[in-house]
């Protein structure tokens, strides 16, 4: 159901929450003020997961944090995902989340974290009125559990998600775009992305870039020590036995029909 319910800005309700378009003002602060005004005057979004369409405006980490705090502290809503790049009105929300092993069991700990690593929602288990920013994380909506690349999800090569946390064993991020992790990816954790994967930390788990067939996808990490690497249909793994890893940033890509790892040259 589309609608002009959010005085002055575009917004629609979706199955998993609410989708808001960041107003296209000249500066970020103006856009934030317009968003804040619309949220004050529009219907309550308490406890909902928010998908934010940032349009052509690239958001900096600090700006993302400001929006997160605005949504969480003033309106009790969790920032689920931020989509940058040309927004399409008909596009379904791109699923993203940190999914525990056997991910269909929401109660046993399906938790979401994305651009909003530190946000919580008051709706969690319905037993706490106020979200606690330090610990709580909202449960992942069921419909966001699917794998990337299902046919009804058009891919946007410009969509990127920022995961501001370390991914621990058993946690997964699936995203129909690029994934950037600010933290480590520990053994037993898994990232599957239709686009590129960049880990600003140590990648020790499994990473699958170009999961929908994009052979030009890359996996880059400050320390590339993966259990297993996949790009499109190519699979590589660390050599058996004691492995000495280079202490420099590296990048993996498909070249001449083979998965190769090379030094990341800026």
């Amino acid at each position: 159901m589309a609608g002009e319910q959010w005085a002055g800005i575009r917004g629609v309700s979706t199955r998993s929450g609410v989708r808001l378009w960041l107003p296209e003002q000249a500066t970020f602060q103006d856009a934030k003020l317009a968003l804040a005004k619309a949220l004050r005057e529009g219907p309550s979004i308490r406890g909902l997961a928010v998908t934010l369409e940032a349009g052509g405006r690239p958001l900096r980490v600090a700006e993302l944090r400001e929006l997160e705090l605005l949504l969480l502290e003033q309106h009790g809503a969790a920032l689920l995902q931020v989509i940058e790049g040309a927004p399409s009105e008909t596009r379904a929300p791109i699923p993203i989340g940190v999914i525990p092993e056997g991910g269909d069991d929401a109660e046993s700990g399906a938790r979401l974290s994305a651009a909003s690593a530190e946000v919580g929602t008051g709706a969690r288990r319905g037993r706490r009125a106020h979200p606690s920013p330090s610990t709580a994380r909202p449960a992942l909506p069921k419909e966001a559990m699917g794998l990337v690349g299902s046919r009804d999800l058009p891919l946007s090569p410009t969509a990127t998600v920022l995961v501001k946390r370390t991914l621990r064993s058993g946690q997964r991020v699936h995203f129909a775009g690029n994934v950037v992790v600010l933290g480590d990816v520990n053994p037993g954790a898994e990232i599957v992305a239709a686009g590129d994967i960049v880990v600003m930390g140590t990648l020790r788990g499994v990473a699958h870039a170009g999961a929908t067939g994009g052979e030009d996808a890359i996996v880059a990490a400050f320390r590339l020590q993966p259990t297993q690497l996949r790009v499109a249909s190519y699979i590589g793994r660390s050599p058996d036995g004691v492995s000495a890893h280079a202490a420099v940033p590296e990048l993996a890509r498909v070249r001449d029909g083979a998965l190769v790892v090379e030094r990341l040259m800026p």
Partner: peptide, 17 residues
């Protein structure tokens, strides 16, 4: 250590220090 990492990940979702 692997299992401990998994547990820490699960505890992140709980309301505790």
């Amino acid at each position: 250590v692997r299992d401990a990492d998994r547990i820490i990940g699960l505890l992140e979702a709980e309301d505790m220090r």
